[in-house]
């Protein structure tokens, strides 16, 4: 998988894409106008951190502390996860100006 996001990039959820809990089925969903993805707890934890201000590296560092896991492992997993969502146009990366 070719990464579509670099550590210094700032990821964000574009207008119309939102995190949603589906209480009927007890699942977590990333809802876009024409598609939806079911998330697990880790995926939801990652997307909750997307504030449009912090870089992926900053988010990875925080998750590494919270989950007490190696930063290298989390960096790879988060990069692949966000790349999959960028391909689906459900996560955007801020243009660095």
């Amino acid at each position: 998988m070719t990464p579509l996001i670099q550590p210094q990039d700032v990821p964000y959820l574009p207008r119309g894409v939102r995190l949603q809990g589906d209480h009927v089925r007890g699942i977590r969903v990333l809802q876009a106008p024409e598609r939806a993805m079911q998330l697990d707890q880790i995926g939801e934890a990652i997307l909750t951190e997307l504030d449009g201000a912090r870089s992926m590296a900053a988010i990875v560092a925080e998750l590494a502390v919270r989950y007490n896991a190696p930063e290298d492992q989390i960096a790879g997993d988060v990069r692949d996860f966000l790349t999959g969502l960028i391909e689906r146009r459900m996560v955007f990366v801020k243009d660095i100006t």
Partner: peptide, 14 residues
């Protein structure tokens, strides 16, 4: 909880 590789599952709409 421990870190695991996050999964994404497409939900078929409609």
């Amino acid at each position: 909880m421990a870190w695991t590789k996050p999964t994404l599952t497409e939900i078929a709409c409609g």
